[in-house]
Design a protein around this nucleic acid. Structure first.
Lengths: 356, 356
DNA sequence: ATGATCCGACAAAACGATTAGGCACCCGCA
DNA sequence: TGCGGGTGCCTAATCGTTTTGTCGGATCAT
């Protein structure tokens, strides 16, 4: 039975190079107080042995695990999985691993995730928070303990808190979408929103309401249908909405997945898009352009979001490492959205195609 | 300036409980050699302090980090992101974190990922390998070093190697799909396959070829178009294929994303689906049912795959921990596929709608 | 009464890396 | 020759946890 070949440690390298393990460590950490010869021989020995530092030991000593945690609500939403991948790309280049925590809309799971990750001595944290108020305390604790936290939010979550933040100007995009629909002549518009009236996705619903108001339309409560953020949620909400006697001619959906769900509901009810119904989503997931018809949507600049998140978390970690003068003031990056008009939005037809 | 509140350690708990740190450790690990009173007071102290064991220290001591690595090619493919989420669910319940490594089709990145993870003392590994031959050596090393590896593959990857494996009977499903298309009357069929002739997705292309052969049709090389596994790949391959003079009436796509790409190409070329073109995919991602028309596809039992992967890796890890009698024989779980007929497959029309 | 056994708890040695502090040694200069 | 000040490397302490071995004392059998 072949005995498990233990990974070479710093001591093996030291022995092979003929130096002490501290010399090896110094070389590997790039200290200048080492002779050129020592450096040379240590590096050679490390290469020959295929030495890879044990990150657990390193992390234990330094009280940081070279890990960044990322908390999102739904890693299956292509918007998030795309974002995750890009953030991972950035962080991997700086030798950080990423642990993803998916929390649904569940604040308890968010807090569990925080606790779990703090046991791993995460260096940083990227959070798309569900309910910023409840999470704020735990996050502040974490940050006080040296974990640099960055928030992502297009909806003003946790504003005023002392965290780095990346915000997306969803409100502008949502407004543009509404103006687009109203400009096409739509007068019966509905908003399919996330989760519950208690968590109102303020930027998006705010844009919906103020666009209506600006054009002299009332925003009755029943024009906002609350559901989750997923395909099936959109489908169910869409059915409910489109079966109403006086169904809307245009729907603004909280995100693309929900929009796709609404599209399915419309199709199954015999409504043609965009003739009988216009639909606009948010996110511009890659798939949006592939739908039939392709989806009109408010595009988020995912690449720039990911880049900004990565930069903020990395520079925050660096700043925290040297206890330089002051704790850096929280930074805030705001990124724009763009309305991408495709095939699911058009002027309303003469009237509803189904009985009202 | 509030000093960073250090996380409580086992020593803090010991002090508070009035016992030594070893007593605390014993209690926490569930040893029986501790008095009931000691247990009680230790647990109380731990709870009061909100003690959470430091996984770095624990991992260093035990040479395992309570982490499972997962290597996939494209975490953005909804099939994989769904799978990842479900596997994470299973493993999280047993207190393992999961680190995802996305490798594209790049074998070098696969090996980098392996090296990186071994520095974290992963306990287990779930791998969807690109090229099993090259990866096999590194994986075998890893496994010899005590990391339990589980392979996922529907295409016979790395068969005969001493790893636990979950296989999906893609061949059967692909065959059923082909029989379905041929039964509908299609005689000009094409296969849009992954990547390159060097990596031929043997089960799927094999099924394509043998179905043709069984019905007396020749499988000319040009009936297989190689491309990647993503939306855009399918789109480009579809354009190429459907612009040919004698375009096929039916396309079997290597996965659903590629199928969706082909559908877009068809639409843009003015081909109606399924009248002018039938398309069948593989995976049955949730989205398939939401497309217009909904996608006919070979469904993989994702929930069962995830469950099987989780079980195999967990039981493998457990078995390795106690150096019980023998190293457990590699296990193999084969899961079935189902053909789900939806709206993108129908009998071929009188003939091509565009000039040939 | 005395040796054997056991029980509960603890001290101490790992695990692999970082780093402060110290110790030779060598150089130059007085 | 003696001394100061650099170099260049090493020793040792440390991070938080697990685990082996030990030890005092109680119990038990003889």
């Amino acid at each position: 039975m072949p005995r498990a070949p233990r990974q070479p440690t710093i001591i093996d390298v030291a022995r092979r190079a003929g130096y002490s393990k501290s010399a090896v460590s110094l070389v590997l950490r790039g200290a200048t107080t080492v002779s050129a010869e020592a450096r040379q021989r240590v590096l050679a020995a490390a290469a020959e042995l295929g030495y890879r530092p044990n990150r657990l030991a390193r992390g234990l000593r330094l009280a940081r695990g070279q890990v960044v945690g990322m908390i999102v609500q739904d890693a299956q939403n292509p918007y998030f999985s795309d974002l995750i991948r890009r953030v991972e790309d950035v962080l991997l280049q700086h030798d950080y691993d990423v642990i993803i925590c998916e929390t649904g809309q569940d604040v308890r799971r968010e807090e569990q995730a925080l606790a779990r990750l703090s046991g791993r001595a995460v260096d940083g944290m990227i959070v798309y928070p569900t309910d910023s108020r409840r999470l704020a305390a735990s996050l502040a604790d974490l940050q006080a303990g040296g974990v640099h936290c960055v928030l992502l939010g297009g909806d003003g979550v946790g504003s005023g808190l002392a965290f780095d933040r990346v915000e997306v100007a969803i409100h502008d995009g949502a407004l543009a979408a509404m103006e687009h629909l109203i400009g096409l002549g739509h007068r019966r518009l509905a908003f399919v929103a996330g989760v519950s009236p208690q968590q109102p996705i303020p930027e998006r619903s705010g844009a919906f309401q103020s666009a209506l108001a600006r054009h002299g339309m009332a925003c009755r409560d029943d024009l906002i249908v609350h559901c989750g953020f997923r395909l099936q949620d959109g489908y169910e909400a869409g059915r409910e909405l489109l079966l109403r006697p006086n169904r809307p001619t245009a729907v603004f959906a909280v995100n693309d997945l929900v929009a796709i769900g609404v599209l399915r509901a419309a199709r199954e009810l015999g409504l043609a898009v965009p003739r009988d119904l216009s639909v606009v989503g948010v996110d511009d997931i890659e798939l949006a352009a592939y739908l039939n018809p392709p989806l009109t949507t408010v595009a988020q600049p995912i690449d720039r979001i990911a880049e900004a998140l990565g930069d903020l978390v990395l520079s925050g970690i660096r700043a925290r490492r040297d206890p330089a003068v002051a704790p850096p003031a929280p930074r805030r990056i705001v990124l724009p959205t763009t309305l991408v008009v495709r095939g699911t939005s058009a002027p309303p037809d003469g009237g509803p195609a189904v009985a009202d």
